[in-house]
Amino acid sequence: MHFLVLMRMVPDVIEELEIAPDGKSLDREALRLIASESDDHALEEALLLKERHGGRVTVVAPEAPEVDDLLYAAAAKGADRLVRLRGVNPGLGVPALAGSCVAALQSSAGLLPADLILTGAQTIEDLDGLIAPLVAFRLGLPYIGVVTAVTEIAEGKASVIKEFQAGYRGEFEIALPAVLGVQSAEKPPRYVPVAKVRAAMKSAKIEDVEVPQPVAQSLDGIEVLSMAKPEVAGRAEMLEGSPEEVAGKICELLAERGLL
């Protein structure tokens, strides 16, 4: 089995997000990037499937600051092939990114065929589309999103669990090859010690694949007017002081409402 994982670096929202001088985008120079959380889960699910069914895991990620760390960490966790896509313009939006990824997958780099293409169900910056359905659409493959487990692979089909709402889930059967938008893996993404990542840096090789035809398409039909902190109707009344003082104030509030 060949499990191909598409991963992306996204801004770490724990850090302050600075707006670029144009007022329409993030100042990417000032950003700290991390692996998109659901992409990390997609990798974990692929690694679990490899352990269960055999085969290999390929990780493909567009070039970005710190992306080498992501790829080496994936190798340390058990990924077999690491591919960095070069020539992808991150500012062009998700449909263009999907087009670049598919062009690379279909290039002579030998990334396809893959039995399952796994990627995160969404990232925090997917303004103009989700990459999993777009990749599926362009490759003519079936797709399902919000996946939380792949329970069986047999006879050219996979059984997957998808989340609905209020705790309801569904078990689906999808014909392979297929594209999965993974929400969370069956287990939390595995921990990998720094020493193992350092070892992977020495032993693993990152391949560069040029996007064959640079996609010139911009945010087609979407013009970004502004980016800013949210317009909010109100803001919390802030309680200040030492933990003991704040605890006392919260107790007062609860007592006033008959909650203590």
Partner: peptide, 9 residues
């Protein structure tokens, strides 16, 4: 953390 305003053309 952020909002964006977009025009659909």
């Amino acid at each position: 953390k952020l909002e964006t305003r977009v025009r659909l053309t």
